[in-house]
Amino acid sequence: MNAVVRILRYLKSAPGKGMMFSKHGHVDIMGYTDSDWAAKRYRRSTSGYFTFVGGNLVMWRSKKLKVVSLSSA
C-alpha cells in the first residue's frame, strides 16, 4: 500500500509526466541495494535501494547518511 500511495503522490505532483508499466506475465518482487563508504569529497556515506514488482520499478531511494562509516562490521 505504501508503494501505491507513493505512486499516486508522484502522479499528483507531476501532471505533465507519466509512468509506464509493462506486462511481463509474472509478479516477481526484486530488490537491490548498495552503499558507499565516505567519499573523499563529502566524507559522508551514501546508501540506496530500488524495488521492482513484475519487472516495473515501483520504489527507490538514495540518501546521504549523517554519519561516516569506517567499516562494514
Rank of each mutant, 00 (worst) to 15 (best):
Leu65Ile: 10
Trp60Cys: 09
Phe52Gly: 02
Tyr10Leu: 11
Arg61Met: 13
Gly31Ala: 14
Thr33Lys: 03
Thr33Ser: 11
Met30Arg: 15
Arg43Ser: 15
Ile7Lys: 09
Gly25Met: 06
Asp36Tyr: 14
Pro15Ser: 08
Arg43Pro: 00
Ala14Gln: 09
Trp60Thr: 11
Leu11Asp: 07
Val58Arg: 00
Lys63Gly: 02
Asp28Ala: 14
Asp28Leu: 06
His24Ser: 07
Met19Pro: 00
Val5Phe: 03
Ala14Ser: 12
Leu65Asp: 12
Thr51Asp: 01
Gly31Tyr: 05
Ser45Ala: 15
Lys17Arg: 12
Ser72Arg: 13
Ala39Asp: 13
Ala3His: 06
Tyr49Gln: 04
Lys64Trp: 11
Thr33Gly: 02
Ser62Gly: 09
Phe21Gln: 04
Ala38Val: 01
Gly25His: 03
Val53Ser: 03
Val68Met: 06
Ser45Met: 01
Leu8Glu: 10
Gly16Val: 01
Thr51Asn: 02
Ser22Arg: 13
Ser72Met: 04
Phe52Trp: 04
Val5Asp: 08
Tyr42Thr: 15
Ser69Ile: 07
His24Asn: 15
Arg61Ile: 04
Asp28Gly: 05
Gly18Thr: 06
Leu65Lys: 14
Lys12Ile: 07
Val27Asp: 14
Val5Gln: 12
Lys12Ser: 12
Thr51Ala: 02
Pro15Lys: 03
Ser35Tyr: 10
Val68Ser: 15
Lys17Cys: 13
Val53Met: 12
Gly25Arg: 10
Ser47Asn: 09
Lys17Gly: 05
Val58Met: 01
Ser47Asp: 07
Arg43Ala: 15
Arg41Pro: 00
Ile7Tyr: 04
Ser72Leu: 00
Thr51Cys: 03
Ser69Gly: 02
His26Lys: 11
Phe50Asn: 02
Ala39Gln: 13
Leu11Trp: 03
Asn56Thr: 14
Asp34Gln: 11
Ser13Tyr: 01
Ser47Tyr: 09
Leu70Gly: 05
Ala3Met: 10
Ser35Thr: 11
Gly54Val: 01
Val67Ala: 10
Arg41Gln: 12
Gly54Pro: 00
Val27Pro: 00
Arg44Pro: 00
Trp60Arg: 13
Val4Phe: 07
Met20Gly: 01
Leu8Gly: 02
Ser69Asn: 04
Arg61Lys: 12
Leu70Gln: 05
Gly25Tyr: 08
Ile29Glu: 03
Leu70Thr: 14
Phe21Pro: 00
Leu65His: 13
Lys17Ser: 09
Val67Gly: 07
Met1Trp: 07
Leu57Arg: 15
Ser13Cys: 05
Asp34Pro: 00
Leu65Gly: 03
Lys12Asp: 12
Thr46Asp: 00
Asp34Ser: 13
Tyr10Phe: 14
Val27Tyr: 14
Leu11Met: 08
Tyr10Pro: 00
Ala73Thr: 15
Arg6Phe: 03
Gly55Gln: 05
Tyr42Leu: 09
Gly16Trp: 04
His26Phe: 09
Ile29Met: 10
Lys64Thr: 08
Asp34Gly: 12
Gly16Asn: 13
Gly48Glu: 03
Ala14Asn: 14
Arg43Met: 12
Arg61Ser: 06
